[in-house]
Structure formats: C-alpha cells, structure tokens
C-alpha cells in the first residue's frame, strides 16, 4: 500500500508571499508555531566555534535536529555520534561544541552504542531520557549498516538520524553507497568510459528502514527546516526505532558555492532527485509535493562533481539522471498537487 498520494501534514497553515521559499515564516506566525531555532530559549546544543566548513549542510541540519530533539524531550537527551565530519569538527580536544550529553565511540557503531545507552536508561528507570544517534551516510548506509539494521530490527528505543552528504567527505570525498550516479568523487574519478559514479548502484536506506516495520521513517532536507524540526518532534513522539534521513549538501565534496547550500537542497527536492516522504510502521503516510518543478540539470550544473557531464555534453547520461528523478516523482507521487502550493 502506498499512501504517497497523501500530502504530508503542512508545517504551517500560512501561504507564503514569496514563491518557492520557506524562509519568511517566523515573524508572520504565532509564537507557538514558530521554529525551535527561532526561540530565544533553544538549547543551542551545537554552539558556535566549531570547525565546520563555510556553508556546511550537516552543521545546519544537526543544529536543527538536536535542538528540536532537546525541545521535544525537555532537554532529557543523550546524543551518540558516529565518527565523521560532525564528530571531528565539533570536538577538537580540549574543546567541545556540544551543550548536550554527548558520546562518540567509533565510525560504524553509533546505532549499537545508542542501543546500549537506551538499555542503561531503561534499567536505571530513567524513562524520561531519550536517545538520538547520528552519523553521516558512510557511517549509516555503509560501515554502520549492520548495527543500524540490528537496532531497527530489535526496535530499540533510539532515533537515528543520517546526515546524507552523499560521500565520505571527512576523509576527502570518496564514494559511499549514497553517492549518486555520475557524481565525481576521489574514488569515482571523472575519467574513463563512464566518468564519475556508475549507474545502477547504491541503496535506499529509508526504504530498507521501512522494511523493518519500525514506527517511524522520514526523509527530510535542510531546504525545509520547519519540516525537519517537525519530523524530529514527531519522531520523539514514538517509542522504538525511528529513522530520519536528511540530505545535507557539502560545498567541499560537491564542488558548490558555500552560499548555494540551501539552494541546492531545494533544487534536489524540486527536481525530484531527493524525494521527501514519511512512513509509519512500514507504510508511507505522505510525501512532500513539488511546488515548482525544475529540470535536473538546474540542480546538477551548480556542482563541480557533475562538471564532466556538461563539459563533454554528455546528453545520454544527463537524460538518465532526469529519468531517475522522473521515477522518484512517479513512485512517490510528487506532482499530485501540482499548482496547489
């Protein structure tokens, strides 16, 4: 059963005067409807001074996720972090950016460490404490996949958030199983017969998460931070294993301008490259409709990792990428409400 035809519950009931953007909401809405991030008493869980790159999508996404989780749990939160950019740029000894109980162990075990922390809280009768485990796409879809699947399958009481920047950026931009086709990385160079990452590889971890039948799975984007906060808050309303997959553009790895992070995230959504949906107990409950459809090339051409497609005028592969987006649009019914903002 596919309920992607349903629209996800709107984050705000307002209509925006500025087409195609979400950035103008807060001052126009009532205090209760404003974002966590707009609140003066947000937890500021990742405080300033960290070493994230300019325009880092992961720093932005994590900031919204952790602050929203802190609000949702009344600050009774323990964060477990996988090795990766987010861990490295926030905790250069002896400094830490984390104003939250935070533990890092290894690259591939954040989900399992989360399981252990949750077990300890349960045995100690600390039912008010909730667990957020997080990592990048490498730490979640590749090396940490076994632990992640185990945590899902046991329905351990952990919210796992994957910040997907589509490659191993911390080690210098190598291919992961989340790297899209044609993208140039250090291990899928833009040379040879099939430059960049090959077609027909990779996996959808959100769909795999759904196949575990866990209470809540969502895809989100830093293009829509209201929606990201809403999903984190909603996830904290469930007990058991929950998974949120957030696309976070990486200026360094994607070869994009740091001021284009949000624009790229939005183009990924509006082109159908990155479908936004949510699911409960293995069933899709809604998807975010495309407001202003754009061709995939609009998204690709801002990124140097795809430059080889344009330099050589690789029409067949550009067409294949457009077809992949079209398939997403059909599968998740992303155009059902076309023209209806």
């Amino acid at each position: 059963m596919n309920d992607a035809t349903k629209e996800m519950e709107p984050t705000q009931k307002l209509k925006f005067y500025q087409k195609g953007t979400f950035t103008v909401g807060n001052r126009l809405v009532s205090e209760a409807d404003r974002t966590v991030q707009a609140s003066i008493d947000r937890s500021n869980a990742i405080t300033c001074g960290h070493r994230g790159c300019q325009g880092c999508g992961e720093a932005l996404g994590a900031r919204y996720v952790v602050d929203a989780a802190m609000r949702a749990t009344n600050n009774n939160l323990i964060v477990v972090n996988a090795t990766g950019c987010l861990e490295v740029f926030t905790t250069p000894y002896p400094e830490t950016s984390w104003q939250v109980a935070w533990v890092h162990s290894l690259f591939g075990n954040a989900a399992a460490v989360g399981t252990g922390v949750a077990a300890a809280m349960r045995v100690k009768g600390r039912s008010e404490v909730r667990i957020l485990a997080q990592g990048g796409d490498g730490g979640s879809t590749d090396i940490g996949f076994g632990c992640l699947s185990g945590m899902f399958e046991r329905n351990d009481d952990v919210l796992y958030v994957c910040y997907d920047n589509e490659g191993y950026m911390n080690t210098g931009v190598q291919r992961s199983s989340a790297t899209p086709p044609a993208a140039r990385t250090a291990t899928t160079d833009a040379v040879g017969d099939e430059p960049g990452n090959v077609f027909g590889t990779g996996k959808s971890v959100p769909k795999i998460a759904m196949a575990h039948g866990i209470p809540y799975v969502a895809i989100a984007s830093v293009a829509d931070l209201h929606d990201l906060e809403r999903k984190v808050t909603k996830a904290m309303g469930f007990h058991g294993a929950r998974y949120i997959h957030v696309q976070v553009p990486c200026p360094l790895g994607w070869g994009s301008a740091s001021h284009d992070t949000i624009r790229l995230a939005r183009l990924a959504v509006e082109s159908g490259v990155f479908p936004i949906f949510e699911a409960e107990y293995g069933v899709i409950t809604g998807s975010r409709k495309i407001r202003n459809r754009v061709p995939v090339v609009e998204y690709l051409k801002l990124q140097k990792r795809y430059a080889h497609l344009f330099k050589n005028g690789d029409a067949p592969r550009l067409e294949r990428l457009q077809k992949l987006a079209d398939r997403n649009i059909a599968e998740f019914n992303l155009l059902a409400h076309e023209g209806n903002v």
Binding site: I78, V80, V103, S105, L106, N109, A112, V113, G114, T115, G116, V117, A118, A119, A120, M121, V123, K124, C147
Partner: peptide, 10 residues
C-alpha cells in the same frame, strides 16, 4: 558497541 553505550551510561 552496545556494551560501550551502556557502560558509558553507568
């Protein structure tokens, strides 16, 4: 790994 989590949590 789960042991690391539970032990770190006391």
């Amino acid at each position: 790994s789960a042991c690391i989590g539970s032990s770190a949590a006391g």
